[in-house]
Design a protein around this nucleic acid. Structure first.
Lengths: 262, 262
DNA sequence: CAGGCATACTCGTATAGACGAGTGGGCAAG
DNA sequence: CTTGCCCACTCGTCTATACGAGTATGCCTG
C-alpha cells in the first residue's frame, strides 16, 4: 500500500468545528481546483485517505459523496474515484430553427453534430397518438389528444438529450408528420407545407436534478443536473402548432440566445 | 415511539438485487410523488423507518441522502426530514430589457417583484475597478481592467440570485455607472445617454451544481442546481459594452425566450 | 402565571467491522 | 506463448454503536 505523496493533501484541524469529512472534502476540492488532480485522474483510494488522515472509512466515503454531489468526481466500482472530465458541450444558438437551416435532408441535430466533428445518433424513436397532459393541452389550446414524437439523441455514443414533440391531431394525423421519418427539414418543414407558416417560438427553461428515469435514459453521473426546455411553436395565425419537451444533460449544453434591445 | 401507519410504506424485497437503501428511497419517492407526503410535510423519522424496515440507521440515512441529492427532501437538524416545498418561481421574459421597461426610477427586479406581490431586496452592493478575468476580457474585446458592479437579489428574504456587471473602464469610469446608485433606468439607461445605443443582448445559459461559495451566498438546499447566465450587451456599433454574470437558484427561476422563426 | 430546566425526540458525525462484487495484474498450468 | 485462475486492490452495502447538538414540550419552580 503506497502511502500518499506528502504535501499533496494537508492535515486535519482538530480545533475546527468544521466536520472532519467536510475538511477532507475541502482539501480534495481545493487540490482539484488547483489542478493537482487533473480531469479524469484518479484520486487517492479510500484506504489511502483512511491512512493519511487517520479516520474511518465511512468518513472518507462521506467526503467523497460530498464531492460527488457537487459533480466534481465520480466513482467507478473496482477502479477508483476520478475527477469528472468535462465533456464537450453542444452550443444551441437561438437561430437554430431559422428557415435557412431547414433546407437539407438531415436533421438539425445531425448536421450540427457532424459539423462539430462528432458522431450523432438518434435513438428510441416512437410516434403515437395519446392523451394530452394537462400542461401540453393548455399550451396547445385545449386539445384532448395529440400526436407524440419521442426520440433520444446521442453524441459519440453518449446520450445527451431526449425530447418529445406534441402536435394537435387535426394538424398531424395522416400526414408525414405521423411517420417515423418526417422527411427533409423535419416536422417544421412539413408544418409549413401544410399551411402553418411558422411565426415564432417560445422557449421556457428550467434546471433541476434528474428523476431516476432521466438518470437512466441519459446515463447521468451523480451531481449532474438537467436542463428542461419546453418550446412552443406558433404559426402566423397565432395558433400553437407544436410543443416540444426536451430534457438535456446539463453538462453537455450551453444555450445561447439573442435578444433585441428594443 | 409511535409506529408507522401501516400501508403508507411497503416492505423490502429481500430477493431483489436492488440495494436496500435504494428500495427504501424508491418507496419514499413514490409516496411523495403520489402525494402521500405533501410539500413541507415531515417524513417518518429515521428511528421510525429503522423500526419499520428492520434495518440499521445508516441504511435509512443513506436513502435520505439519495432523496436529498434529487432535491426532493431536506433535513432540518432537531426537527426531521421534510418534503422540499417548491418555492414560487420568478419568470424572466425575454423582453425584460426592452426600453419601455426602463422608464421608471426603480430597478427591473424591484418593479417586477412588487408586481408579483413579493418583497424584493438588493444586497451586498459593491462597485469597484478590477482586473478583467480572461473570459470577461475576451467578451468585452480585450480590455485589461473593468468596472465591476456586484449585488445580490432577495425575494421575501430569500436570496435568489447574485450578479456582477463588468464594464470597460473607458466607458464607465467617472460616470454615474461607477456610483452605487446608477440612477433611474439603471446602467442601461446611462449607457444610452453616454451614446452607446443598445442594439441587442446575447445570453449564454448553463446549469450545474453550485460551488460551496454559491451554496452559502444563495443559501441553497442540497440538490438544488444553479443556472449560470452570462449576458453581453452590444451597442449599435457592434461593441460589447457590458458583460453581466449571473448565478441563480435554479428552483426559483423559469427563463422564457421568444425566438423568431425567420 | 412566567420563566427556566429537564427530557425526549430529532438529525449530525464518527468509529469499527463485515462481507460482496468489479477490476486488473501476476503467476502457474497447459 | 497463451489461457485461466488467484489474489490484491478497488468501491458498494450493511450492521451496531456512540456521542453531540438542535428543537420542542411539559413540568416544576419561583
Amino acid at each position: 500500500m503506497p502511502s500518499l505523496p506528502s504535501g499533496l493533501l494537508g492535515d486535519l484541524d482538530p480545533t475546527s468545528d468544521r466536520a472532519v469529512f467536510r475538511q477532507i472534502a475541502d482539501q480534495l476540492r481545493e487540490a482539484i481546483d488547483r489542478g493537482r488532480f487533473k480531469e479524469g485522474e484518479k484520486l487517492p483510494s479510500e484506504a489511502e485517505l483512511v491512512d493519511h488522515y487517520g479516520v474511518s472509512r465511512m468518513t472518507v466515503r462521506n467526503s467523497f459523496s460530498v464531492l460527488q454531489g457537487e459533480g466534481l468526481v465520480h466513482a467507478e466500482h473496482g477502479k477508483g474515484v476520478f475527477v469528472r472530465p468535462r465533456p464537450p458541450v453542444r452550443r444551441l444558438a437561438s437561430d437554430r430553427f431559422a428557415r435557412r437551416h431547414r433546407e437539407q435532408g438531415k436533421s438539425a441535430f445531425t448536421v450540427e453534430a457532424e459539423a462539430a466533428g462528432s458522431h450523432p445518433q438518434v435513438d428510441g424513436l416512437e410516434v403515437k397518438e395519446e392523451k394530452a397532459s394537462q400542461d401540453v393541452s393548455a399550451r396547445l389550446g385545449s386539445v384532448r389528444r395529440v400526436l407524440a414524437r419521442r426520440r433520444r439523441y446521442l453524441l459519440d455514443g453518449r446520450p445527451v438529450e431526449f425530447a418529445t414533440s406534441y402536435l394537435p391531431l387535426d394538424i398531424a394525423r395522416g400526414t408525414q408528420i405521423a411517420e417515423p421519418n418526417p422527411g427533409p427539414g423535419g416536422i417544421y418543414a412539413r408544418l409549413e407545407e401544410l399551411g402553418h407558416r411558422l411565426d415564432h417560438f417560445e422557449e421556457e427553461i428550467r434546471a433541476r436534478m434528474p428523476s431516476p428515469d432521466e438518470v437512466r435514459t441519459l446515463r447521468l453521473a451523480s451531481g449532474v443536473p438537467v436542463i428542461h426546455l419546453i418550446r412552443t411553436a406558433y404559426d402566423t395565425e397565432g395558433r400553437a402548432v407544436e410543443v416540444c419537451d426536451t430534457v438535456m444533460a446539463a453538462d453537455a449544453y450551453v444555450l445561447s440566445y439573442q435578444l433585441p434591445a428594443t
